[in-house]
């Protein structure tokens, strides 16, 4: 590797790349994609509510007549421009109890949010523990007696094992 090549992929260059990416991401994340149109508001609200005659399909997805009717009502209220999204959601939810598609974060319902996080933490935590155990095992030093035992059973003097080379 020439020095020019290695300097191209050196830490400062990587750090610069990282900064560029972060800056662009922040710019893009905060960028205003324009005011949402009425249709987008209707779609967004419809995605938060379940169709009352379906099996958990949202009003956005369902083609059932009841869903059509509720979509019309949402469109009517959005066009009237007097209610905020949450108010419209509450209006529908009041009349069709249980249609809120996002379980609330209270009581038993909160479990559905908490348990995945717990499992994720346990998963990676378990992995970390496993790696620590493996590293500890690997660091166990061979005693003289161990070396002698191995040499004896191999019938050779100590032979160095070829490590796996850096390969794919």
């Amino acid at each position: 590797m020439s020095t020019k090549q290695s300097s191209l992929k050196s830490w400062p260059v990587w750090a610069a790349m990282g900064i560029i990416v972060v800056v662009m991401l922040v710019f893009g994340a905060l960028r205003d994609s324009g005011p949402s149109t009425q249709a987008e508001r209707v779609d967004a609200i419809a995605q938060r509510l379940a169709c009352p005659t379906c099996d958990g399909e949202s009003i956005y997805v369902s083609r059932a007549p009841a869903a059509e009717a509720i979509r019309n009502e949402i469109a009517r209220q959005v066009a009237a421009g007097q209610s905020a999204d949450n108010e419209i959601v509450a209006y529908i939810e009041q009349r069709f109890p249980g249609s809120l598609l996002l379980p609330r974060a209270e009581g038993v319902d909160s479990l559905v949010w908490i348990l995945p996080v717990v499992v994720l933490v346990l998963g990676f935590g378990g992995l970390a523990l496993a790696f620590r155990k493996w590293r500890d095992e690997a660091e166990a030093q061979a005693t003289e007696a161990d070396v002698a035992l191995v040499a004896e059973s191999l019938g050779t003097t100590e032979s160095s094992e070829k490590n796996d080379r850096d390969d794919d």
Partner: peptide, 23 residues
């Protein structure tokens, strides 16, 4: 979990909740 959670809640507490796309 998301698929069976409404089942469990309905069986234990006899009320219907929806766990769907937003979740």
């Amino acid at each position: 979990l998301g698929t069976v959670f409404p089942l469990i809640v309905e069986a234990l507490q006899d009320r219907q909740i929806s766990v769907a796309e937003p979740f």
